[in-house]
Design a protein around this nucleic acid. Structure first.
Lengths: 229, 229
DNA sequence: TATTTTTGTTAGATTAACCTAACATTTATA
DNA sequence: TATAAATGTTAGGTTAATCTAACAAAAATA
């Protein structure tokens, strides 16, 4: 059984090595800064996690997760994102409120709890920030994010975020029925004025390219990289 | 901000002093045994909690909660029981599974989380074990528990537990529509054979005194002691 | 390449929560 | 009431996670 602190180090290492492309290692100072501790503290923990065979680490070298460490880290990310989704969808938390509480909830130890939560949420693929929720088997699909304006006509996609946070824009978003995790169908694009016809939950709307440029989506039909651990 | 351990000591002290009638103090050994630690450990913590003005404690004396300590303890019990209710009602956990996970969840720090959970559960008064859930304001009603057989005709009550755990009994319980937290109306008692007519969620049934003796209830209309902290 | 800057390590200290072993006080009982 | 038993306390030690300060290695740059 890992301590909350150990779990946080594994998660940090995953975040630092997966989210930056072409980089599967992190330095001690970098890791310490990410966790808000001093390098000396991180150094001790790196040695401890190496003993437990959860990371690769050599003196003066960068660190990376082992297969086992990566599995644990993905499990924590999965729990974090499922809790965020629960807080957002069932308890009316806003985007910016979910993270802090999920940081605590992700360390609750109960596999049944997570399975049941997943079921309650109907096996979501994305959290309220539009980030992928790893599956129970530890698979983590990393779909390409693009804007609604870049989506191909005829494709089905899903809103995962916005670029513009102004009130006028967000009200507009709301008006056409859009929200995080909302599926969108791109029906057509008017050749005359470039307006994009979309269908959201049965409601058809036409939106401008400018509007569409500010909606971040992931494509349902597009190829996704799948990384298993 | 209290640590998880400090919270557990306060909760233990509340449980040891409220559940036993006529006893609002607990000894060091008793407390230590309840928490599964050595008396020396509990002793250190008692001094620490006294410093924080959360308990009354004097060398070689018994300990009790201060008004402030009691408030904190009740808040933890409230969280524990709300989480138990959530696990039972929304995630399909069984009675005996909820406690262990709630022990962890009760320490999550977020007042919004608890308020929203309370709302989601529709402000329940009892947890799946039939124990009272303290209100948001820290009031803790302690209704008298009795069996269904002891309930007065015409009264409304609520099932909070069973005395018999045999499969035949539990199937019967299920058949008449009974479950934890289920309101019951006692319609009549047949003078001829003592059968009790009850109404459960619109469904009327007649049950024997033997059956009714094994159903633990709390009375809705009866007087309850209210203890505020 | 020599030097400075950045990065990483070690040693030693601190705090919280636990322990054991020895001791002190209170309570029960012979 | 004297003594045994139960209960409570203290002193000193351990582990996990943190720190600071001093030092070592690697990387950047003049």
């Amino acid at each position: 059984m890992l301590s909350t602190t150990e779990e946080n180090y594994l998660k940090a290492l995953l975040q630092l090595t997966i989210e930056q492309v072409d980089k599967s290692e992190a330095g001690t100072n970098e890791l310490a800064a990410h966790l808000g501790v001093k390098p000396a503290t991180a150094n001790d923990m790196l040695k401890k996690l190496r003993e437990k065979q959860l990371i690769h680490y050599e003196k003066y070298g960068k660190s990376s997760l082992t297969v086992e460490g990566r599995k644990k880290a993905i499990e924590i990310v999965r729990k974090h994102r499922l809790w965020e989704t629960f807080l957002y969808e069932h308890l009316g938390f806003t985007w910016d409120e979910v993270h802090e509480v999920a940081e605590q909830l992700e360390h609750i130890q109960s596999s049944k709890l997570i399975d049941k939560l997943d079921e309650l949420l109907d096996y979501p693929s994305f959290d309220p920030h539009g980030d992928v929720i790893p599956s129970a088997t530890g698979e983590m699909k990393i779909p390409e994010k693009k804007t609604l304006n870049e989506e191909t006509v005829g494709h089905q996609c899903k809103m995962v975020g916005v670029k513009d946070n102004s009130a006028t824009f967000l009200q507009y978003v709301d008006k056409v029925g859009l929200r995080i995790n909302q599926p969108i169908k791109v029906l057509a694009r008017q050749p005359y004025d470039e307006l994009i016809e979309i269908e959201v939950n049965g409601l058809k709307s036409s939106v401008s390219p400018r509007f569409a440029d500010n909606i971040i989506i992931v494509c349902h039909d597009c190829e996704t990289q799948t990384r298993t651990c």
